[in-house]
Design a binder for these strands. Sequence first.
RNA 1: GCGGACGUGGCGAAAUUGGUAGACGCACGGGACUUAAAAUCCCUCGCCCUUUGGGUAUGCGGGUUCAAGUCCCGCCGUCCGCACCA
Length: 860
Amino acid sequence: MASRFNALKSDAAWQQVWDERRTFAARDDSDKPRTYVLEMFPYPSGRIHMGHVRNYTMGDVLARYRRMTGHEVLHPMGWDAFGMPAENAAMEKGVHPGGWTRDNIATMKAQLKRLGFALDWTRELATCEPDYYGHEQALFLELFRHGLVYRKESSVNWDPVDMTVLANEQVIDGRGWRSGALVERRKLSQWFLKITDFADELLSGLDALEHWPDKVKLMQENWIGKSQGLQFGWSLSDGGNVEVFTTRPDTIFGASFVAVAADHPIAAKLAESDPAVADFIALCKQGGTTAAELETQEKLGFDTGITATHPFDPAWQIPVYIANFVLMEYGTGAVFGVPAHDQRDFEFASKYRLPIRRVVSEGDDTDPDFTAGEAYSGPGTICNSHFLDGMDIEDAKRAVIQRAEDGGWGKGSTVFRLRDWGVSRQRYWGTPIPIIHCDACGAVPVPADQLPVVLPEDVSFDVPGNPLDRHPTWKHVPCPTCAGNARRETDTLDTFVDSSWYFIRFASQPSDKAFDRAVAEKWLPVAQYIGGVEHAILHLLYARFWTRALKHIGMLDIAEPFAGLFTQGMVTHETYYRAKVIRTERPSTADPETIVTESSSIQTWFSPTEIERRDGKAFLIGTDDEVKVGRIEKMSKSKKNTVDPTHIVDQYGADAVRWFVLSDSPPERDLEWSESGIEGSWRFVQRVWRLFDGLTETAGAEGGDKALDRKLHQTIAGIAADIEGLAFNKAVAKLYELVNALERAAPSASRNAAIRTLMLLVAPMAPHLAEEAWAIAGNAGLIADAAWPEVDPALLVDDEVTIAIQVNGKLRDTQTVAKGTAREALETIALANANVQRILDGAAPRKVIVVPDRLVNIVA
RNA sequence: GCGGACGUGGCGAAAUUGGUAGACGCACGGGACUUAAAAUCCCUCGCCCUUUGGGUAUGCGGGUUCAAGUCCCGCCGUCCGCACCA
């Protein structure tokens, strides 16, 4: 009689077989068509979480499916192993970042193996090992040699207590997230990669990425931020000149002031002699940079007393201000203000009582005295602008640029929001930057034969700061050029560099170089890349840049690294918490005599394992202690709403977990974890198993079942399309339908054949179950190596269809007819329908619409 | 503020080019089997009504059409990205 599918036993057995036979090792020399399926490699933070499970299951289904359809599939896995959490762990727990990272890798690798992913572990890599980052150093120096790397002073967020540089995200309310110390802006010499050289390419290259989500392309487009306009100089009354950039040269006759950034050289120079200017600059720098602060921050300006001469009218002078809203980092750090047509300029001009002059009008309203309460930035005709009058905006822009270029005082130019990529990190746990600083020779690349520059592991974290900086021996080396005393660069590379080329290293990993070009080009670009949308900008942009840079210097002839991109949703879970209101009293900042009471609430979070639900409420298990049910949020350690995949896998088996994360929610949307959901998946695995197991009882069944044959072939084709389209939830639904049909069907040869085919259909999703059934059914070889079933096109179409019979667009009945029934016949059937007759009540229809094989609509 | 996405039963969701709304799953309810339970199987399941039938229904209000979840216009709401970008 029917047995149970023993997932634990079966999972282990088949995982061992796949391992021993190296079933999923990709062959570089294969004659088959190649497919490179890649999921974003994990950071080894400790244990895998459900997000990883979902991500890797999706890629796995596609990889296994492509194998079955005759592809040589590269589906590798590795570790994005450098980064700050390792250093934080080192400081908190006194462990070595390397030891901590490698332990985590071992744990997480075992967890991934437990899920039976079809990964080529022979290509496993960890970015923290010299045999990876050494090649990265060589690539970095290659870019250096080609002028794509440079060094420049740049300001950073410096935590004076931890003696380290902080990323913007690590600065909270102006304080270091860990130390709580007030963060300083500090100028440091840092290494930059010239990503801006590729700004145009990276932008235009997006068009060719047909298999990328529009959303991600748009985000990258906005991030690159291309603006076209005019750059020109205003001559100043003090004899100087200020360059400005504008996207609206057409409004040049509406100018009423020039404004420069607080850190603009003009402001700095004035500050030297005028303390009032210095005070104003200091005031500007005080303001926070958070979104909320910027929103409410008042526009502040300081009239320098200098005036600027209008380029089209030497007699026209406008004032030059220092203004807090002008950014030094964008454009030229100076703008001219057109209050009538720019809201920000409007606010500024209103405050400082500067003229607001209309130069773009809608219709015939060309009154130069602008009275509306806000700036007008819409379309219109130029007015009050001398030679531009009557032109539309675009013509006027061209006309002004033309005159500026002819007159030699300005030129059309393009400005990008994208900045060069600063890659220096004052951190230990990263790729050492392979540069040696010599007082005589400057920054000298480490010679190729001295690579890799190995990160020393004999370091301690008992003193704040970068341990490389105080390492007794590692830091001091002779200069490769003059052999004099020199120092190693102690900064390490941003970990985004590590992840900018790992997909190339997966494709080809010779020991003597980063990759073999010919082999890498066989596999690249990645056919399908899958990962979280949080990487939509930085990682994906950097990887695109790195690949283009390699192409530019002739190392690899691939422009875009990822032909297909899919961003999957998060795995979420309810949160459970108890809120405690904390009241604190402190003297008011405005008036120290007054005591202010501040209340804030602190949440204590509870793990789902501590909670039981009763009558829609949540209680701590075994008690009447009620806790609040919070929002459904991304599983995170801080909210304690995580579910450890390993416990679930041990309880239900790998296939049930895989099935669950593919079910129900469309993969791009968030998936809410639920206990009943995983139980449902487990029940399905058992139902399928009973079908497989029952084959022996119906072995002798004979006869065909045309309806079932059709269902089977429609399912084969449907699932194939769904997997190719990464619509796993739909593939899952189709499998449920087929299983429902098989359970209901009477024994027949068709049914037996369909059940055997079902093994192949579930194989990408539930591979352990499929292998087990495949073996018991007496098939030779592994189902992992089997071919995807052929579809009989004749069975894809039904010979009967159900048509809708409508009156005035409302469904009144349905009728099953032979497929392809003629329009006239359908009309006759519909008009003869009892319901139709009753509704028409003898009246003649005004019109009859017939859509063959679909419906008849009678317009009464 | 700018840009984008989304809005369908109690819940997750399906629904080719506009053509039978709610496939499939979860939950709930009823039943069978069982001494009992688990497991399994069967049935019901958008809402409303005068229930072999009818009305109504895809955030709200309009429109186009024989026909609208799908197309157009205007609102409302939720989420995401960017943000003083010149």
